[in-house]
Design a protein around this nucleic acid. Structure first.
Length: 815
RNA sequence: GCCGGAGUGGUGGAAUGGCAGACACGCGGGACUCAAAAUCCCGUACGAGCGAUCGUGUGUGGGUUCGAGUCCCACCUCCGGUACCA
């Protein structure tokens, strides 16, 4: 009987559904294991093989744990809010409310045909009111806690998206979604979440959480902690009468040791003090520069090769160390968004300041001795011995940092300071396709949250949902939505017409899954206690800093609000283990819609079956590195599964029952060991290779051995679940193979009785000898020396030394 | 610039410092067949040789070691991330 994948896969998918095989009892599970895959973003093109690659890796993990006796919960949902969907809807001219259900249905069909062990009874969808009411509820909770605030800030504005986008969505100054569109700066009033309150804790936890190293590093860099000092530079009295009265200008520096070399200061053009500090005769020039900066888009501003520009604003500050007046400049190389938006410029010891000073002929004072081996020109940016620094001359600069900070501190001119690169999370989006922000603006009462009992704030159906480009959300055009009575005073008020960032939708979805059908809570406390944190989360490294950081932040905040149980072990971290999988490469390029090289799985599933396709994707390369997708190899997997099928269903019944030959038995036990380890470490490609090797060896033995056949089928099951069910039944078992325990190997049977030992002469391979296991050196040496090939190499020479690695190799050193 | 990752046969890729190329694809040969497909078997890094065999070989150049794809140093190339962060 041929391997007919279509009927086999249909049969078992129907069986799983009919018997609810993948719907664990969430309240009574004794050994819960939460296997999470990343929320798919259903697009019209449907699922592509990149998604399948990702999900299959999760499913294999889930099935493996199920065989190990865990109650596995593997949920899925759809993340269909957001700018991607909205832009696509505009492109095809269909309303997202009508478009999304079709896309989701198509996605669901494709996912089902892959044979994932997904609990379809707990599917969630971010665009459903019963989901986004809780997204809005989270907003309210953060607001209550003081973690949501309204701020005016220069934000990234994409003219094509016609909305504000996050820093993280700006790629090289271009919009993430429109690589040809430069992102502009625009000052707007926005909602922010105070993720920076958690900067230190988010950083600390990265020291111990079990996550892919690459993601931990990316987050560490993103948080960007740096230690230094906050220094105060008084404005020179008289140089700017209006500006001096507002107190000193604060700067952040990591090099307080070089403060004696600060010969000028630079403020960001947007710095709020500029207006008051500028002298009348300089005002016109300064205004012109500030206007030019405003118009400059971020790509221009970030271009490092560009020559430095700037304007002296006419005023002076006092260097707090030297008490000398230094000029105050503005320049766009100082960013308002980092530190205080102002710097002390030390041209001798900072490359940027050096370049600027050269251009504008500002004084350069070296306050560190330049070692003889350092280049004589340019800024000297390393540590060194202090000079021209008054009482600190001769000190090592590293040691001087704290001393100078303390010395300035005595006069109230400085203090130690830790600065983070991480910024608060801008939540507002001036778009249509997202959950409305549940806030009301009242002229009398100010900002008033929507009462919880009024949630959800439904997103109105709006035929023309295009953004205007004015910065106003399309929702502002809907009078019935916009105008509302103030919940506090009852007077006329206005709803916030922005929607929240799509990253908020996906920052808590895994909390919703176990409580997907709960109308009373966002997440049921008892269930959450049992299923949180998530045991295994596997996803793309493109989410290293955005999704994964926001998610961690929310969970730490929920923990502090008492919305999540205290957790001394994982300290509120949502994912016990996170692993980043690799990307699929196609024709030397990463597979993506924008490159137009995506591959759709349907054709392959139809022709070869889901099992073959799953296994093929896992065989392409190391799961955590990704692989090169070329379909030429898929027949290899197909042939393998056909052989296994034939072996189980046709050959085994005719074979005599009996033990495997020793060699095959050893191979079997070695394979169990190897596959077990490989599944734990996501080494799927080598696990498959090991199964093939094993099969190639036990099949020719031509015996019917229960343990061998059953072990093999169970090990195959995470990769090829439908076929494994079929074979499990053919071996005489009742369904389902998922309940079969993972095979256990006998360590004594993982080692051969005789081993082949490599023989080297002077480090060069010359021969190999078979000898009994754990043989003593003398025995191996004598055997080696007796070999013809060895003799020809050692003839007439003296044996100087023997290096023997048991069961591996012997190296004879002769002279 | 900085931080990661990767460079191994015709191809995808294997290799706790110990026989480089497992496992596959492809290719060559054979069996079966009237023939083909499918299947099965054998071979397949490169060079020299009829051959046994010998030599060379994991991006480049050095080094450590009895022994290096693996460790160290200095480079080159590709991919990803990030960037006037003071």
């Amino acid at each position: 009987m041929a391997y007919e994948h279509a009927s086999i896969e249909r049969r078992w998918q129907e069986y799983w559904d009919a018997h609810q095989c993948h719907t664990p009892d969430l309240d009574r599970a004794r050994r819960p294991f939460y296997a999470l895959m990343m929320f798919p973003y259903p697009s019209a093109e449907g699922l592509h093989v990149g998604n399948v690659f990702a999900f299959t890796g999760v499913d294999i993990q889930a099935r493996f744990q199920r065989h190990r006796g865990y109650d596995v919960f593997e949920p899925i949902g759809f993340d269909a809010f957001g700018i991607h969907s909205e832009n696509y809807a505009m492109k095809v001219g269909t309303h997202p409310m009508r478009l999304i259900p079709n896309n989701v249905a198509n996605f669901r069909r494709q996912l089902r045909q892959m044979g994932l062990m997904v609990d379809w009874s707990r599917e969630v969808s971010t665009t459903e009111p019963n989901y986004y009411r809780w997204t809005q509820w989270i907003f309210l909770k953060l607001y209550e806690r003081g973690l949501a605030y309204r701020g005016k800030a220069p934000v990234n504005w994409c003219p094509k998206c016609a909305t504000v986008i996050a820093d993280e969505q700006v790629i090289d100054g271009m919009c993430e979604r429109h690589p040809d569109t430069r992102v502009e700066k625009k000052v707007m009033e926005q909602w922010f979440f105070r993720i920076t309150d958690y900067a230190q804790e988010l950083l600390d936890h990265l020291g111990w959480i079990d996550w892919s190293d690459i993601v931990r590093r990316a987050q560490i860099n993103w948080i960007g902690r740096s230690e230094g000092a906050l220094l105060r530079f008084p404005v020179e009295p008289g140089s700017s009468s209006a500006g001096a009265a507002d107190g000193p200008i604060e700067v952040f520096t990591t090099r307080p040791d070089t403060v004696f070399g600060a010969t000028y200061m630079v403020l960001a053009p947007e710095h709020p003090r500029v207006d008051a500090l500028v002298t009348p005769e300089k005002r016109a020039e300064v205004e012109a520069y500030r206007e030019a900066t405003r118009r400059k888009d971020s790509i221009e501003r970030m271009d490092l090769s560009r020559e430095k520009t700037g304007v002296w604003i006419g005023a002076h500050a006092i260097n707090p160390a030297t008490s000398q007046p230094i000029p105050i400049w503005i320049s766009d190389y100082v960013l308002m968004g980092y530190g205080t938006g102002a710097i002390m410029a030390v041209p001798a010891h900072d490359e940027r300041d050096h370049e600027f000073a050269r251009k504008f002929a500002l004084p350069i004072v070296e306050v560190l001795e330049r070692p003889a081996d350092a280049p004589p020109e340019g800024a000297f940016t390393s540590a060194g011995k202090m000079q021209n620094s008054g009482p600190f001359d001769g000190l090592e600069s590293e040691a001087a940092k704290a001393k100078i900070t303390a010395w300035l501190g005595e006069r109230g001119l400085g203090e130690p300071r830790v600065q983070f690169r991480l910024r608060d999370w801008c939540i507002s989006r001036q778009r249509y396709w997202g959950p409305p922000i549940p806030m009301i603006h009242c002229d009398v009462c100010g900002i008033v949250p929507v009462p919880e009992s009024d949630l959800p704030v439904l997103l109105p159906e709006l035929e023309d949902f295009r953004p205007e480009g004015s910065g106003q959300s399309p929702l502002a055009r809907v009078e019935a939505f916009h105008r509302v009575a103030c919940p506090k005073c009852g007077g006329a008020a206005r709803r916030d017409t922005d929607v929240s960032d799509n990253f908020l939708d996906s920052a808590w979805y895994f909390l919703r899954y176990p409580s997907a059908n709960d109308d009373q809570h966002a997440w049921d406390p008892e269930r959450t206690k049992r299923w949180f944190p998530v045991d295994s989360y596997i996803g793309g490294r493109e989410h290293s800093v955005l999704h994964l950081m926001y998610t961690r932040f929310l969970c730490l905040a929920f923990r502090d609000m008492g919305l999540l149980p205290p957790d001394p072990e994982f300290k509120g971290e949502p994912f016990k283990r996170f692993r980043a999988h690799g990307l699929l490469i196609k024709d030397g390029d990463k597979m993506s819609k924008s490159r137009g090289n995506v591959v759709i799985p349907d054709r392959y599933v139809e022709e070869y079956g889901a099992d073959t396709f799953r296994m093929f994707l896992m065989f392409l390369g190391p799961y955590e590195l990704g692989g090169d997708f070329r379909d030429s190899g898929i027949v290899g997997i197909r042939r393998f599964l056909e052989r296994v099928h034939r072996w189980c269903t046709e050959e085994l019944p005719g074979y005599p029952e009996g033990p495997l030959p020793r060699e095959a038995e050893v191979k079997l036990h070695q394979t169990i060991k190897k596959v077990t380890v490989d599944l734990e470490t996501l080494g799927y490609n080598t696990a498959i290779a090991a199964l093939m090797e094993c099969h190639n060896q036990i099949r020719p033995a031509a015996v019917r051995n229960r343990f061998a056949a059953e072990s093999f089928v169970v090990m195959l099951s995470p990769f090829a679940p439908h076929l494994a069910e079929e074979l499990w039944a053919s071996l005489g078992h009742a369904p389902t193979v998922e309940d079969a325990p993972w095979p256990v190997f006998d360590p004594a049977l993982t080692v051969e009785e005789t081993v082949e030992i490599a023989v080297q002469v002077n480090g060069k391979m010359r021969d190999a000898i078979a000898i009994s296991r754990d043989a003593e050196e003398a025995e191996v040496r004598d055997a080696a020396l007796a070999r013809e090939k060895v003799r020809s190499q050692t003839a007439g020479k003296e044996l100087r030394k023997v290096i023997y690695v048991k069961n591996r190799l012997i190296n004879l050193i002769v002279s």
